[in-house]
């Protein structure tokens, strides 16, 4: 083999490898993909934020379960919460269960947040004591919202705030059996 041929082969290999890594650079995401998509949701029961008793994150009865992780210090949560309440009012009576998991948040701050941004009789607000749910669901920041189908399988996730229209649209897709996957609607907030 001629020396110039070897030179070309070496150059080609180096360039291809450099390109391979350059192609990977733009795939770095703010929030990594959740390995939970396609798996059964963690079996957890958390205490209500404002009353006695506990609630399971998946109760086996709802056609679709929407689990939203939030906190009072999370700015996108303030914009998202009224839409979650409206969606709960609209879809709650129709077989869709809304569970709001207050995470890494003092109880008093969380209740003040609900006083300001609203509540729904169709939304169960629970406290993530010891951050069990945040760890089991692999939360990287807030807000993050998970969609469970009737079998309790995680079929979708939204990182960042989610609005009413998106919520209704995604719930409709879950009802139709679509594994909606995940998306990011903006930055998530990271607390302590």
């Amino acid at each position: 083999m001629k020396a110039s041929t070897i030179t070309w082969i070496v150059i080609g290999i180096v360039v291809v490898l450099a390109g391979f890594f350059a192609g990977r650079l733009d795939l770095i995401e703010t929030v990594p993909d959740s390995p939970l998509i396609g798996s059964t949701a963690p079996d957890l029961e958390l205490p209500f934020l404002e009353s006695d008793g506990t609630a399971p994150l998946y109760d086996g009865a709802a056609e679709v379960t929407v689990i939203s992780f939030w906190a009072s210090w999370c700015e996108p949560c303030k914009a998202e919460h009224p839409d979650l309440v409206r969606a709960a009012e609209s879809l709650g009576p129709d077989g869709v269960r809304f569970v709001a998991v207050d995470s890494q948040d003092p109880e008093r701050s969380a209740i003040a947040f609900l006083d300001e941004y609203g509540r729904s009789d169709h939304q169960e607000v629970v406290a993530d004591e010891d951050n069990r749910a945040s760890i089991e669901f692999g939360i990287w920041g807030l807000p993050e919202t998970f969609f469970l189908d009737a079998d309790g399988v995680v079929v979708g996730k939204v990182s960042g705030g989610v609005d009413f229209v998106t919520l209704v649209d995604l719930v409709g897709q879950v009802r139709e059996g679509v594994e909606i996957g995940e998306t990011s609607t903006g930055d998530v907030f990271q607390g302590g």
């Binding site: 360039v15 291809v16 490898l17 450099a18 390109g19 391979f20 890594f21 350059a22 192609g23 990977r24 733009d26 795939l27 993909d33 959740s34 390995p35 998509i37 396609g38 798996s39 594994e179 996957g181 995940e182």
Partner: peptide, 17 residues
């Protein structure tokens, strides 16, 4: 190679997105 690298990005096991 840039296009190939993007296409071949591996996904974590157990993540059937």
């Amino acid at each position: 190679a840039f296009a190939l690298g993007s296409f071949l990005e591996p996904r974590a096991d157990g993540s059937p997105i």
